[in-house]
Every structure is written in C-alpha cells, then in structure tokens.
Amino acid sequence: MLSRVADALYWMARYSERTQTNAHILQVQLLNMLEQSGKEHDYLDHWEAILNICASKQEYLSNYTALRVNPLIDYLLFSTKNGNALHTTLRAVRENARVTRDSMPAELWEIQNAFYLTKQQALLTRKRPIPLIELQAFLQDIRKTLLKATGLIEGTMDRDLPFYFMQIGKWLERAEKIIRMIVTILAQHKESAISLAEEDGTFLLDLAAARESFLRKYRQTNLVAVMRYLVQDEHFPCSVMFCLQKIEEAIIAIEQDTSSVRFLTLHAMIKRFASTMNLINFEQLDIHEAIIIMEERLGQCIAFGDAFSTIYHLYEPNLQP
C-alpha cells in the first residue's frame, strides 16, 4: 500500500473518531446548559473543560472575549481558526476519503460525500445564530452518519491493510481522547479540598458516553471509580485498555512476521503502554500525582502515534529501498 494512501486512511479514521466524539460532547453540553445559568461555576467549568478537550481554551480566548454560547458554538463548529472545528474535521474526513476512495467500499465514500454535500453545506449557509434544536439535530446527524460508516467498515471491508490502518487511527484517537478528558477534568479539580474518591465523576462519564454502560455495573459515580473504568475496564469499548488491545490486534494483522523490526518495535511499545496503564492504582493517588501520571500516559500515546507514522513512512517516506 502507498504510504500516502495509508496516511490518508489513518487520518480519515482519526478525524472521523474525533468528529464523532466532539459532536457527542457538544450534544451533552447543549443539553446540560439548559439547566444552568450563565454565571454558575459548573456552567463555566464545563465549557472550559469542553474547550480544552475539543480544541484549546487559550486559542479561543485569543479570538473571543468571553465564554458565551454563540461564540463558543461558532468556534467549536465553524471557525476556520480552530483546526478541530467540526466543520474542519468533517471536511478532513471527506477529503481523505476522496483520495482513498479506491481503497474503501464505494458505499462508505458515498455516505461521507453525501453528508458533506447536503447536510454540512446546508448548515454552513444558515443564518447564525442557528437555533439550538437545529444544532442538536445536526450533531445527531453527524453521529448517526459516522456510526453508519463504522458499521459499513466493520461489516463490509476486507480484513486487509486499509482496514487495519483505519483501525489503528480510530483506536489510537479514542485512547488519546479519553486520557485527554481525564487530564482536563483532573486539572479542574486541582485546587479542590476534597479527595478524588469524593469528587463526582458524572460529567466525565457523560463526556465519554460511558454513563449507561458504567451504571449497569456500578452504583458509585465518584471520580476514582469512573477513571478506573475509563482506563482499565477490558470490556467497555471506549476504555483505554480496550483501545490498546485493538491496536495490538491490528499490528499483529499488519505485520504477519512477528520477528520483523517493525513489529518488535511497535508491539513492545504498545505492550509497555498497556502495562503502565494497568498498574495505575487510582485509589492511592492524590490529585497531583494523578495529573502527572495521566499526562505521562498522554505523552506515551502521542509517542506511539509518531512511531507508527515513522515506521510506515506516513510522513516523509524513506528513500531507501
């Protein structure tokens, strides 16, 4: 497979995952917000967290004056200054699909293309501010379309190189996002006097779309229990451990020769990553230790992505045969 094509498939999957999660996060907040007043701590805290998870608060504040709904929506959905605005990531999904359409099922391309050409373009031309109810419908549409795409990938794609490159993109993005959410939420509680075991973790559960699954198994929604679930649960498909397991499977499928340098390098990295994740004992950490550890894990996640891209020449292909 061409390095350029592998790169595009990998990024298409990453952007698709990112779009889906960001759309979900926005949906959560647009609903939560209805019960909060603009001056409450929760309200501001939540928007701040969302900015840091989906984009960057600093960048936002350099372009807008205050945390207000309409500018926030504008920034997170449409702004060209935000490289992770939904409009931008959706376009990236479609453009990457466009250059790799000969490596994917025709229907997959058509779903993404149709969404881009109809719903997305239609929203762009709407007069702003767009009514919340329409925004909600749009966010729901995004998620449904991308879930349909995921179904097509799972159900119709050959288990071949293009499939596994997309898998690695998707699971790596998901793992990174979960860790990023945890780091952000922890940072917000930095000055808090109460311990992690007493902090409420429901907002984090909602952001990670984990509430339903979590509440089926546990009653306590304190931050420790929630973090443990999001990091270490082996069955929940958004947990970091689950993602790492899927990445390992994909590496094994891409590199059938388990003695190759490529395999050994990547496999060792992912194994080490998984075991450091597993070893975290959230009960015994105070908030500062937890932040440091999770920031380290975030670094590990990013380092794995870089190593993967370098090994498969996704950035600058090596000229040596």
């Binding site: 061409l2 390095s3 292909p317 040596q320 045969p321």
Partner: peptide, 29 residues
C-alpha cells in the same frame, strides 16, 4: 485505477533511483 486494478499514484508517491522508478509504500520502495 479501480477497474484496471492498479494503484492510483501522485508524482510525490514516485521516486527514480538508478534509472528505475519506485513507488513509496508502507514497507519501503
């Protein structure tokens, strides 16, 4: 490319070395 079952490449995917043409794949040239 799809129907002829050949790779669709751009100029930047190709490189000439020792008067031979190579494409840059994930496993090298």
């Amino acid at each position: 490319a799809q129907h002829l079952n050949i790779q669709l490449v751009e100029g930047r995917d190709l490189v000439v070395k020792d008067l031979k043409v190579y494409m840059k794949t994930i496993y090298g040239l």
